[in-house]
Design a protein around this nucleic acid. Sequence first.
DNA 1: TCTGGGGTCCTAGGACCC
DNA 2: TCTGGGGTCCTAGGACCC
Length: 399
Amino acid sequence: VFVSTEQATILHADVDAFFASVEQRNDPRLRGRAVIVGKGVVMATTYEARACGVHGGMNGARARRLCPQAIAVDPDFDAYIEASRELFEIFRRTAPIVEGLSMEEAFIDVRGLEHISGTPGEIATRLRHEVRDELGLPITVGVARTKTIAKMASRAAKPDGMLVVHPTREREFLHPIAVEDMWGVGASTAEKLHRLGLRTVGDLADCPEASLTTVLGNAVGHHLHALANLREHRPVRSHRRRGSFGSQTALGRRRLSPAEVDSTLAALVERVTRRMRTAGRCGRTVVLRLRFDDYKRATRSHTLPRATASTSSVLLAARKLLAEAEPVIERRGLTLVGISVAGLEHPGVGVQLELELDRTGTHGLDEALDELRDRYGANAVSRGTKLSRTVFSEKPKRT
DNA sequence: TCTGGGGTCCTAGGACCC
DNA sequence: TCTGGGGTCCTAGGACCC
């Protein structure tokens, strides 16, 4: 008999109604009122507005009809980016292992911090107060043994709350939850599960795994079956790096001339490649993203022989893909274009470390590492066991 | 739920290789 | 030449997340 001695040491921390909360913090007139961020399409709403049935992704006009007393504001992305940066600073000083899921949410592994920082519950409580006091933002924290249960716990505790699910109470917490409310179950999977007669996570747990994999495919079927039976061993991973850069724009109902489509494409490519150069990343696979009049989507992709972040190379590939797709676009009408670059290569950080160390000496090592993090992204650089002489003398394998 | 912008992961078939 | 078993890479699409 395998007896688990694992404790609830994973935190899922998630700022409530992030964009809307930042707006309320920055403008006192918005506090205590229903706020809708985004005028064309709703990007975020306060809980006051949600009470009227307004939610993210909704058409702005419809949202105003549902909630006429709400104040609608344009999004201020610079403010959100800054708030996110400060938020992650607090996360990272809470514990060294932090896995960001979005601008406003992260898993934090607090295993082994008991003697330094207290129990996971105490750490979570302190974290909530710090975010509230230093950033003026409401945050909810779920604490559990696994990522999914921590995520579901914070969902259950929202807004401005906290929930610790002890390992002995996991079944009791998870099994009554409706399948469609599980993290990772969307509209399509929920429908398939309903067709099997499964309504709750408990039903999912009792269903033979083979029945699930037949209907949902191997990965999803296996994953959900394991989760429902409380088996999950995915660690919190702090050094994840993005796999693609993309940009897209909806065109609305108007028909664009080929010249207009081309200039839109060029602007998207310029945006994406500039971001890539700023981050010091190169990619090989150029993906053209299309959406048609009926809102169905399609992609066309091409893989280049070498990774690049050059505007002209990516634009050349993007134009070829667009030309090939021209007959389909002609037939079905175009309502969205997007470009993304995937197949990213890892930049040669070795040479960067060498430069920084020459300039600063070991005394400024942390500052040098921070500089590298700024350039390559926080996840690209770690101060690990490889900080030895041999690393610095190595030639970069790629640039 | 009548639809914005940014991502992640999985699947399946075909080409190609030894 | 009609034939096994193992693998990689590329393309396109689907589902899901915030």
